[in-house]
Design a protein around this nucleic acid. Structure first.
Length: 423
RNA sequence: GGAGGAAUGGCAGAGCGGUCGAAUGCGGCGGUCUCGAAAACCGUUGUUCGCAUAUUUGUGAACCGGGGGUUCGAAUCCCCCUUCCUCCGCCA
C-alpha cells in the first residue's frame, strides 16, 4: 500500500498519478487525511492519559516502599479512573487505525511518472520486437492438436482426474517441461540468483503482503480447514521471506529465483482464450524476485527485462516487449513490461512474462525495510518477473517448431531433454 | 498424536512484581593513542506512533514470540495461541 507520508505530503500528486490508472482517488484520500487527523488527535489524548497514569503508579510504588499505605490508597482511585479512561481511548484508537488501514488498502500503487494513461491493453506500447514471424505455406496444427498427435499432453485425462485446466504431461512432453524448468533455473543461477524452493501454500498474512488479499481472493484456491491459500505464483512465498525484516544495506540487492507450480482459479475466463495451454488452473513457472535499494530498482527492472529477453533468444522464439499503459497496469505495480511470444498456428501473441517494479508498495504492506548507509531505516523496493511461465512457451515451441512428422527442440534445451525432436 | 522444556535487543545471555527499553559479553559505530594498523582504553548502539523543533535534537506513549487476564504497577504471575528443542508413537 501507499505510505501515509506520501499521501500526506502531496495528496494532489497522488490523485493525479492514480488518475493515470483510471482510478479516482479523491474521495478515499480525503477520508484518509481526515481519519489520520483523528488518529493523531486520539493518540495525543491517549498518550497524555497514560503519562498521567504512569506517574501515579510510580507515586503509589514510592508510598508503599515508604510504608505510607494510606497515601497510596488515596490515589488508587485516581489510577482506576485513568485506567478505565485509557482503555476506552485505546479502543477508539485501534478502531480508527483499522479504518485507516482499510482505506489505505483500497488505493492501488501509483504508476511510474513515465506511464501513459491509455484506456485498455490496446494502448500498450510495443517497445521492441525480436525474431521473424515465419510465414508458413502449409497449414499449421495448433498445439492442442500436436499434443494429441504426439501423445505428449492429455487434456481430457486431466479433466477426468481433476477438471479442465489441469493437463497431464506425458513422455517427451513431461520431459520437455522438466527440461525447460531446469534450463530456466540454471540460467537464473548463472545470472546471480539464489534458488529457492518455497512452500506451495501460504497463510493469510503472506497473501496480504504481496497484495493478493484483500481484493483478489477469488483468484486463489483456498484450503478452509487450515486457512491456507495455494500460491498463484512463487512471488508470494518468495517475497514474503522478507516480511517484517530489516535488512542491512550491504545485504541488498537480494536476488532469488524459484520454480513452483502455480494455482489460479481464473474465475470469469472462458471461450477460445482458454483453449489448450492458453489458460490453466495449474501451471509451472520460474519466477525471479529482487529486493532492491530504491535508488537502484529501475536499473534492476531493466536488467530483469534484458535477462528475460535473453531466455527467449535462447529458445529462438519470436517475441515482443510491451510496456503497459496505466489502464492495463496491475493494482500493485508501478511499471510493468510484458513479454509476448508469437504462437504460429494460433497466429497470436501470448503473454509469457510480466516484469514489474512495485517500488515500496509491497514492502510497505509487509514491512520490508533496510538500514541505509546513513543509518536511517527505509522501505525497500520489490520487483519480480516470470522467467518464464511454461505453458505458453510450450505452446509456442510446439507450434513454431513443428515439421511434418516431428517437433524440433531448440538447441539450448537439447542438453536438458536428451533428445532433439519429438516424433 | 502423547509427555516435558523453551522463546528477552544484530548475536550470546542475565533479569522472575515497581527505580527495566532492560545487566554483562561479543559484534557495530565514534573517539583517544599510533606514521598507519592491531591491541588497549573511553563513549555510543533497536523499532513504531505522537508532539515540539528549519536541521540536529528534545520530549510523551508503545514494544522482552502473538493475544487476553490479575495488579495502582508485569519481561517477571495466570490463561489461550504460535514456533522451536528433547523423549515416545506414527510415517514419505
Amino acid at each position: 500500500m501507499l505510505t501515509l507520508n506520501a499521501i500526506k505530503s502531496d495528496p494532489e500528486k497522488i490523485i493525479q498519478l492514480l488518475s493515470v490508472k483510471n482510478f479516482d482517488a479523491k474521495n478515499i484520500i480525503n477520508q484518509i487525511l481526515e481519519t489520520d487527523r483523528l488518529r493523531r488527535e486520539t493518540q495525543q489524548e491517549l498518550d497524555k492519559t497514560l503519562a498521567e497514569f504512569n506517574e501515579i503508579s510510580r507515586q503509589i510504588g514510592k508510598y508503599i516502599k515508604e510504608g505510607n499505605k494510606e497515601l497510596a490508597d488515596n490515589i488508587k482511585e485516581k489510577a482506576d479512573f485513568l485506567k478505565t479512561k485509557s482503555k476506552e481511548i485505546s479502543k477508539q484508537l485501534s478502531d480508527i487505525e483499522h479504518q485507516l488501514d482499510e482505506l489505505l488498502l483500497k488505493l492501488p500503487n501509483t504508476p511510474h511518472f513515465s506511464v501513459h494513461k491509455g484506456n485498455s491493453s490496446e494502448d500498450n506500447e510495443i517497445v521492441c520486437s525480436y525474431g521473424d514471424i515465419v510465414q508458413f505455406t502449409n497449414r499449421l496444427l495448433p498445439h492442442w492438436e500436436l499434443a494429441s498427435k504426439f501423445k505428449i499432453i492429455d487434456f481430457e485425462l486431466g479433466s477426468k482426474i481433476t477438471g479442465t485446466g489441469f493437463p497431464v504431461y506425458k513422455g517427451k512432453g513431461a520431459k520437455l517441461q522438466r527440461a525447460l524448468i531446469s534450463f530456466f533455473l540454471d540460467k537464473a543461477i548463472n545470472a546471480g540468483y539464489t534458488e529457492i524452493q518455497p512452500p506451495l501454500m501460504v497463510n493469510e498474512a503472506s497473501a496480504y503482503g504481496t497484495g493478493q488479499l484483500p481484493d483478489k481472493d477469488e483468484q486463489m484456491y483456498f484450503v478452509p480447514l487450515d486457512n491456507f491459500y495455494l500460491v498463484p505464483t512463487a512471488e508470494v512465498p518468495v517475497t514474503n521471506i522478507y516480511r517484517n525484516v530489516i535488512l542491512k544495506y550491504n545485504e541488498l540487492p537480494i536476488k532469488n529465483v524459484a520454480y513452483s507450480a502455480c494455482f489460479r482459479r481464473e474465475a470469469g475466463s472462458y471461450g477460445k482464450d482458454v483453449r489448450g495451454l492458453n489458460r490453466l488452473h495449474q501451471f509451472d513457472k520460474v519466477e525471479i524476485v529482487q529486493i532492491q535499494h530504491p535508488d537502484n530498482s529501475y536499473n534492476a527492472l531493466n536488467e530483469m527485462v534484458e535477462y528475460v529477453a535473453s531466455l527467449l533468444k535462447d529458445l529462438q522464439l519470436p517475441y515482443r516487449i510491451v510496456r503497459l499503459c496505466g489502464a492495463d497496469l496491475s493494482f500493485t505495480s508501478a511499471l510493468t513490461y510484458d513479454f509476448e511470444v508469437y504462437s504460429a498456428a494460433q497466429q497470436k501473441w501470448l503473454e509469457v512474462s510480466s516484469v514489474s517494479n512495485f517500488e515500496t508498495f509491497q514492502a510497505n504492506r509487509m514491512k520490508l525495510k533496510f538500514k541505509d548507509v546513513d543509518g536511517t531505516t527505509k522501505l525497500a523496493h520489490t520487483l519480480n518477473g516470470s522467467a518464464l511461465a511454461l505453458p505458453r512457451i510450450m505452446s509456442a515451441l510446439l507450434e513454431n517448431n513443428q515439421k511434418n512428422n516431428s517437433i524440433e527442440i531448440p538447441e539450448a534445451i537439447v542438453p536438458y531433454t536428451g533428445f532433439n525432436a519429438i516424433d
